[in-house]
Structures are given as C-alpha cells and as structure tokens.
Design a protein around this nucleic acid. Sequence first.
DNA 1: GCAAAAATGCAAGATAACTTTCACACGGTC
DNA 2: GACCGTGTGAAAGTTATCTTGCATTTTTGC
Lengths: 292, 292
Amino acid sequence: MPAPVRSQLTHALETGSKAERAIANYMLSTLDQVPFETAASLAEKVGVSEATVGRFCRGIGYTSFKDLKEHLKDDLGDHPWLVSDRLNELRNTARDDESHLSQGMELEIAAVVRIYEYARSPEWQNVVARLARTQNVYVAGFQTERGLAQYFANQMQYLRDKVTLVDLAGGNFAEVLATDPDACLVIFEARRYSRLAKLLAREAKSAGIPVTLITDVFCDWGHEAADEVFAVPTQFNQFWDSTAQMASLSNLIINGVCMELGPQVEERLNRIAGLYGRFTGHVGDPVAAIEK
Amino acid sequence: MPAPVRSQLTHALETGSKAERAIANYMLSTLDQVPFETAASLAEKVGVSEATVGRFCRGIGYTSFKDLKEHLKDDLGDHPWLVSDRLNELRNTARDDESHLSQGMELEIAAVVRIYEYARSPEWQNVVARLARTQNVYVAGFQTERGLAQYFANQMQYLRDKVTLVDLAGGNFAEVLATDPDACLVIFEARRYSRLAKLLAREAKSAGIPVTLITDVFCDWGHEAADEVFAVPTQFNQFWDSTAQMASLSNLIINGVCMELGPQVEERLNRIAGLYGRFTGHVGDPVAAIEK
DNA sequence: GCAAAAATGCAAGATAACTTTCACACGGTC
DNA sequence: GACCGTGTGAAAGTTATCTTGCATTTTTGC
C-alpha cells in the first residue's frame, strides 16, 4: 500500500517537473476540493493538460486520478500520532491476504473518530442528561444486537436504578409501553432490521417516551421513529458487517451518564461490587469471604 | 440559505418514496464520503438501481448525481472530511471539559490497532480454526461482559450450529464440563474478575477443553487457566473502564470463522434470516409475508 | 379486492472521464 | 548548430458513468 496521498504530493513538490510541481502544489492547497475534481477540471485550473494529470498520478504510484481520490478517501494522513509506527507497520507489512485486514482497520478507526464526533454533538448531551435523570430507562436490542443492549443495560445498572432490558418474552412490550410515563428507551439495531425495532420505536414515541436509536448508516426509518439516531459505521471491508463499534458508543454514553450523576455513583458501584463478591466472589477474594 | 443540499436531503427523508428515503438517509449519514461515490457505487450500497439514484437527484432539483456533488462542494464548506483532519479537529478544538475525550479517543484507536495486531498472530489462527471445526462451542461472560458473550454467541450461531451461551442458572456448568469432549470455550471477562471465570476456565482446561480468554491487560491468572489469552486495552482516560473493544475483537474472530467455513455459510445465513422473517419479520417485508 | 398510478430495475444508448499514441517543444550536450 | 532526452499537449481510443425507454413490481385509492 502506497504512502499516504499527502506525503506523496509533498514529495512530488521537490522532485517533480514544473508541471508536476504545479499539480502537486495545487492539490495540496485545495485538498478538500480534490474529491470534486476530475482530471480535466483539475488540469484546466492548474493550466496543464488532462493527460499530464493522469501521468502525474501514475508517476506517484496510483493507477489514475480516480485511484488517487480513492486512496484519499480513507487516508489517515501522515501526521504523527500516538500509534503511527505500529499502524504503519501493520499497513506496510501486510501480505496480500492480509491487506483487507489493514484496510478494515483504517475503516474501523474512522468509525471510532465518527463516534467521538457524535459525543460532542448537542443531541448527545440530551441523551446523556435524559439517561441520568429519567425515572425509568428501558433498553432493547434485536437479533445479534441483543447482546449489545444487554451490555449497555448491565453497565447502566451499575450506575443507576430502574434500568430494564426489555424483551418479547411476554409477547408484547407492556413493560415499556403501559407503565410509568417518566421513561426513555434506547434501541440497538442494524440491518436487516427487525420489524419489532421499528414497531417498538413508533409505539414508544407515540406514547410520549423519548427514543434513542443506535443503528447503522443504512437505517432509513430511524428519523421518523426515534428522537435521536446515532448511525455507526459497520462496514470494515470484511465479509461480515460489524456492529461492534456500537459498544464503544454505548460506553461513551455510560461514561457521560457517570459524570452527569457525579460522585454519588461511586457508592452504588461499591455496593454492587460488594453484592457480587458475597454472592459469587471475585478472583483474589480471601477464601473466607466466599464461605460466609 | 445554509447547506441547501443537506436540507433538500432532509426534506426528501420525509416526502420521498421508500427508495428515495433510503438514498437520502445514506447520503446524510455519510455526507463526507459522498464526493467519492458514483451513482453506481451509491446505488449498490443503498440497494437500489443506478437509475433510481439519477432520478432521485433530478427529483430534488439537480440535473444529475454529478450536479449534486457539484453543489455539495460549496455546502460542505470548510468541514474537514479527511480522517486525519477530523482527528486533528477533534484534538484541537476540544474545550477544556472535552480534552479528556479526545485523549480517550487516541487510546481507543490504539486499542483497535492492538486488536488488529492480534488478528495476525498464530494463536489467532488457532482459535479461528478451532471455532470453525470443533463440534461444540461454548461461550461465557460474567458481570458486564455477559452482554459481549451473548453478542459473540448470537453472531456465531448465524455461522454454525451448536453454539451455546453458558450460564450459572443450574448452579454448575455441567452443560460444558460434563458433556461431549469435542468442545471449546470462549470466556469474556474483565476486572474485577468473577471467581466463576477463573474456576470455569480451570475446570474446562483440566477436562481437556481448549479455553480462549478475552480479557483486559490486568488479568494475571489468564495464562495458567486458558490456552489463549487476548488482552484488550480498556483504559481510555475515562471515569469508567471500557471493555467495548472486545466487541471489535470478537467480530474479527467471527469474520475469520466466516472465511474458514467458506461459501457454505451463506446458505445458513439465508436460512436463519428466513426463519427470523417468518417468525418475527424484518422492516420492509411485504405485509403479506408477516401474515402467513 | 381490484384497477389505476407510481415507483423501480433492467438494458441499451449517450455522454463524460480517462488513457494512449504520437508529434512537437524545450533544455542541455557535444 | 545538430543531436538527444525529457516533458508536454492534441486527438484518437478506451473505459466508466450516467440517462432513457420499457417491462415489471409495488403502492394507492376506491
């Protein structure tokens, strides 16, 4: 895999011919416009011919201008950062059968960045505040995302009381829909969406219960049925779409709720850990403690 | 009039037909990827035909998909779209009360890198091959990691038969420990480790059942009790440690098993989706299918 | 439950984007 | 000043992208 586009262009600034330097310079200074250009439009702006643009791109290691744009898309750049050495190591030493892996990794990193962008949005603050203050919190997940819902609910239960993982065991969702209206609902769902997810979201909304939907980018019914939609990237260049980063998102929410609730949570955490210790035990507990 | 494209798309979310809503939604969710798309690539991702994308763009006031991109150029404005720029944006514009967030992000990215390093290790291949071939797969998770175990198990069940999420409901783990010895076990656990996790791992190991432990970096009893230990970073500069990246790791394993099993999984996937469709239904299924 | 209308996909045709070929211009060298 | 190599643009050729017409499916209204 060739080095990041930006550094290739910078390199060309020094080594290239006159026209090449001009192209590289123009691209670097208007990098965020580049994806909208075609070889022809770029050529005209720089004052060279279309063919030269193509040759230039081929010269610095891409098969075409289109190919360069393609790389730009998931380019993490060449800025020094925490793990760059290891990242580059993985990128560069990948055997052919592994290159899909390292490409997947870059996409997964982009997903993490996306999630942290969400964490600074106003709607995020809404959700966190609501999850901290609302009397009853309900969590639902369907199909493979049920585990994520449970993960979220279990952690939330460490922080506050009255958090329930809902299910269809009773054949309806009365536990959410026909109860204390001081409630809110979080749903985890991804393609192919369960009929239940949409139905539950709708019913809850019309019952006046705020709904937060954590889903993938393909969900087209989210906005009509939920108050907030967090669309998490799920395609990481693998055979199997991965909703794993929803777990990261939910942990960030948990953390937000934690801070919203303040120091009082600590006491609850200890109490619950104590309960777990007495009923089940932790590794390293003195044997005596277990036998009580 | 800020961001006409965005508002046009938002408007289409409400007024458009099914396919149109899907297109608008996808474009909005991945707005900064749109410049790289062509009508065809977009159509494939959204699951509509190329022609529909063109018609949609014309429908909301542009002459073509290309024309829409042309307008997007102005609207996207100075919003950074390159992942590296977005990263820097998050890093640099963080208000004081957010700086712990962006530091956490870097750690979380490092965790992703760590996981992909694992995915290239020999022991990883062992685990993947074993999970594909062993007759019975058992999965366990304790405390908050139980959800992750369920997540893993549910996905695995889509790929192969005889995957069981074990629990202590019966008061022992006979389902794993006193049964067909052609079995393997995956355990998810993090601090403070449940006594059960260690005990189960030991018992399984001495019963000749290979054990894979997915845990945090603090686990000091893993190597004596498990055959493979994947230690996932969990400290992201937050109040609350996050085991979320275990989900990413488990999805990578799933993906590996998927490839190991080969094309035959596809049939199983379809069969299971079909079952889900008939018993519960998916969003978008014709009403008739649900009433059968 | 049916028919009319709208929406959609397919495939062929049209257009735009890109590559290749070839000839010429410029700069340096003998 | 002729020679040679490199870089370049124009035009022709190739491929990708988009549009259009038509058949089919889905939705809507009664």
